[in-house]
Design a protein around this nucleic acid. Structure first.
Lengths: 98, 98
DNA sequence: CCTATGGTTCGATTTGATTCGAACCATATC
DNA sequence: GATATGGTTCGAATCAAATCGAACCATAGG
């Protein structure tokens, strides 16, 4: 398994962020992580098939929405609030509260 | 031709806004209208076929991004900045500046 | 080593959005 | 009325994203 690639803060693109958030499942993931908690993938989307879920994890990670961390067999996800707030102030709150 | 239907401020939905903005052509339209100017459709997208352009006009209007006004043969468009800023503070600036 | 669990990858299918041409509608001008 | 212009609507084609099963990889625990 290759290393998890995340764009750095300066590499965040609004087009990518919009694309990542324009999906009901991924929007729900963002709202689930809104309180800053770090959760495993299975905790967030237990009902979805593994391959579909994995697809969404990748979109969220590569487009800079979440940071993923491997620990043992689990993959933990955390919302990149600081980075997103710094680059696109207000955006994340609008999405979460909206 | 039926009347142009716009959602009111309270009817703006973040999911719809994200879907409307997640397209390069529509993102360009928003940025073109960013200074508050009111422009005709043909001024904004002169190169695109009428039917494709009309499709994007409808998405932008129905999802609350722009207000459209008919005058004579022309359709004028204006960014709904006040409404979008009120409902989703920071969102529009992030998209325009991003 | 063996087994179970958590995720990824691949290929194929399905679904939804975009695109376009053609026909049409509405308004302005002659 | 005739003609030109600005947009809409419809249906069909095209293209991208989402979905899924199956096979695979990695780690934890016996």
């Amino acid at each position: 398994m290759e290393e998890l690639e995340h764009p750095d803060r300066a590499g965040l693109r609004i087009e990518a962020v919009l694309a990542a958030l324009d999906h009901p499942v991924r929007l729900r993931v963002v709202r689930t992580l809104a309180d800053g908690e770090e959760l495993t993938c299975r905790q967030i989307l237990p009902e979805m098939t593994k391959s579909s879920a994995s697809h969404h994890w990748r979109v969220l990670r590569e487009n800079g929405i979440v940071e993923q961390r491997k620990q043992g067999r689990n993959l933990y996800m955390r919302l990149r609030r600081a980075d997103l707030d710094a680059r696109f102030p207000g955006m994340l709150d609008a999405v979460i509260d909206g």
